[in-house]
Structures are given as structure tokens and as C-alpha cells.
């Protein structure tokens, strides 16, 4: 039952129109409805609202190493200045960009390939899809240890295999080399998350109307043209959301670099999050780390804007 709203002209508003209740009155009128969301609001204010506020506050202070916050000292924008002008910030940002862009790109491309290949009935399709999804559901900690073992400098199976096949003369020390460490971690990250892109895009492919593909076929489009002109436009929305979620996840990555290399060697795998964690809980400099967080925060807000936009586009289309 749709609500019948008069669209036809001619409905002249009568003079006895009740004044639109003001915001407060409406809130009071709906207090009953708020009861449903109150628990969620309370929990989130406590665990989300307050921390955001506190992080921003701390970012303007120099905090004592014993974390007695009554002794913190106001330093204005000093923390920000120190971070933004430091060489390490530039290096870490560079690593973060490489990490995020390369991981996202390959996760999306592999996910798209897998989704397209899985988008037809064949024997074992369900099993295959399930197997490909396993890395996504298992713990990143377990995954990191498994890959650390695969990459092991002396007994790692990858090194042994590359010697076996004659690529190198002796096992490569993947994680202790500043040139190979970051790419090695990116491979693990892609391994962990490409199937997320796959499953999203697979669901997106269900929305491509079969009739349209047939029509294109009748119109003489070949496989590539059908993909490019019919399938891809339908995947645009899903792709946007998927890529945004991947970017956000990758910017927020912590476990893989932290467990596999701890940011090393020589900072080669240090990204924003590991840097913040190290600053806060390694060197106990909460003020500095908070400022760092706020910077990250601002980047996230910008991305969040696009995220919400991508999500609500669907909603608007639905209500039309």
C-alpha cells in the first residue's frame, strides 16, 4: 500500500492548515520511536562519540608517559607540525599509498575476474566459491603466521620452490629485504581480501538483466563488447562501494604488517596504522599519536563522504 499523496494540482491549501509542529514537538511526539534505537545510541555514544572527541582533544596536548592525564600540557598545533614536517611521515605515507593502491587494485581485478568466471553454472561452482572465500573469513593473525612460514628465509616453501624451478640460486629472504618486504605483504593482503571483491561483484552480476545481454547478442555485440557496454555499467555502483570499502580496509590494516614484519625492516613496511600504534603503545606518546589519528581521520571523512554518496544513490533510485 503506497501512501496516497495528492499530486494533482488544484488542492488549494485550506486556511485551517495546522502549523507544522516544531522540531522539539516532533521529537516529543516520537519519543516512543526513539526507545527502539536508544540502546544503540547509548552504546555508540559511549564507544564512538566520546573517543572521537577525546582523540581530538588529546591531539593538542603533550601527554606524560605514565598516562596520568591530569599532567598533560597544552601544546597547540605542535604535534601536527612535528608530524607533518617529519621525513618519517613522508616515508610512511608513501608506503601507505603503495600498500593501499596496489592491494585495492589487484583485489578488485582478481575479484572481478573470479566473479565473471563464476557467473555461470558449472559443476563444483559452489564449492569453488566457498574455498575462495576461506581466506577472507579466517583470522588475519593465523593468515599472517601461515604466510610468515611460507616466506621463511631458510625453510620457507616459496624460497625452496623458486630454487627448485631455477629462478634463484638460493632462497630469498623476502621479509628481511627492504625491496621485497612490502610487495610480499601486499600479496598476503590480496590473498586475504580479493574474495571479498569477488563476492560483492558476483552479487552485482545478478542484477545484470539477462534480456539485455541477449539483446546485445542479437545486436551483434561480441563477448568483450557485451561485457563493456552491458555488464560493466551495471556493476558501476557495486564497484564503487567495493573499491571504497577495500580502500578503507587497507588504510586501516594493522594485523598483517604488525605480525609479519612489525613495520620493518628499516620502516619498509611501516604504514600509518602501525606507526600510530607504535607511537601510542610503543613509545607511549598519546598526544602525538592522537594528532596522527586526527590526520587519518580527516582522510577517512573525505572517503566517508563518497562512501555515503555511493550507498545512498541506490536508496534514492529505489524511492523514485
Amino acid at each position: 500500500m503506497t501512501i496516497d499523496v495528492a499530486h494533482q494540482g488544484g488542492a488549494v491549501p485550506a486556511p485551517s492548515l495546522r502549523r507544522r509542529p516544531n522540531l522539539l514537538r516532533r521529537i516529543v511526539r516520537h519519543w516512543n520511536d526513539y526507545a527502539y534505537i536508544a540502546p544503540a545510541i547509548v552504546v555508540m555514544l559511549l564507544v564512538i562519540g566520546y573517543p572521537i572527541y577525546y582523540t581530538v582533544e588529546l591531539s593538542f596536548f603533550k601527554t606524560p608517559p605514565n598516562l596520568a592525564m591530569s599532567q598533560k600540557v597544552f601544546v597547540g598545533f605542535d604535534n601536527y607540525r612535528a608530524i607533518l614536517t617529519s621525513q618519517s611521515f613522508r616515508d610512511v605515507t608513501y608506503n601507505t599509498l603503495i600498500w593501499t593502491v596496489v592491494s585495492t587494485f589487484f583485489a578488485y581485478v582478481l575479484g572481478l575476474g573470479a566473479a565473471l568466471a563464476l557467473n555461470r553454472e558449472f559443476l563444483g561452482r559452489g564449492v569453488l566459491r566457498a574455498v575462495l572465500l576461506v581466506p577472507y573469513v579466517i583470522s588475519a593473525v593465523a593468515a599472517s603466521y601461515v604466510w610468515k612460514w611460507l616466506y621463511h628465509s631458510d625453510f620457507g616453501v616459496i624460497g625452496a620452490l623458486s630454487v627448485q624451478f631455477g629462478f634463484t640460486d638460493e632462497p630469498i629472504n623476502f621479509l628481511d629485504n627492504i625491496y621485497t618486504a612490502l610487495p610480499s605483504l601486499i600479496v598476503v593482503n590480496i590473498w586475504k581480501e580479493f574474495s571479498f571483491a569477488m563476492i560483492m561483484l558476483l552479487a552485482g552480476l545478478q542484477t545484470v538483466p539477462d534480456q539485455l545481454l541477449r539483446a546485445a547478442q542479437v545486436d551483434g555485440a561480441n563477448t568483450w563488447q557485451r561485457f563493456w557496454h552491458v555488464t560493466m555499467p551495471h556493476l558501476k555502483g557495486v564497484s564503487m562501494v567495493t573499491i571504497l570499502l577495500l580502500v578503507v580496509t587497507n588504510l586501516n590494516s594493522f594485523i598483517i604488517p604488525w605480525i609479519m614484519t612489525g613495520g620493518g625492516p628499516a620502516g619498509a613496511t611501516d604504514i600509518w596504522i602501525t606507526q600510530i600504534y607504535q607511537m601510542a603503545f610503543g613509545r607511549i606518546r598519546f598526544g602525538m599519536a592522537s594528532a596522527y589519528s586526527v590526520i587519518l581521520f580527516i582522510v577517512m571523512m573525505a572517503l566517508g563522504y563518497f562512501y555515503v554518496k555511493a550507498l545512498t544513490r541506490g536508496d534514492e533510485a529505489k524511492s523514485e
Binding site: I3, V5, A6, A11, A14
Partner: peptide, 13 residues
């Protein structure tokens, strides 16, 4: 009987 949604009269007197 009157029902309004915002400024729109769905049911008008």
C-alpha cells in the same frame, strides 16, 4: 478529515 504530509494535503477536509 485532513491528512497532511509536510505541505501536501493527502486528504483534504
Amino acid at each position: 478529515v485532513v491528512k497532511t504530509y509536510g505541505d501536501i494535503y493527502a486528504v483534504n477536509h
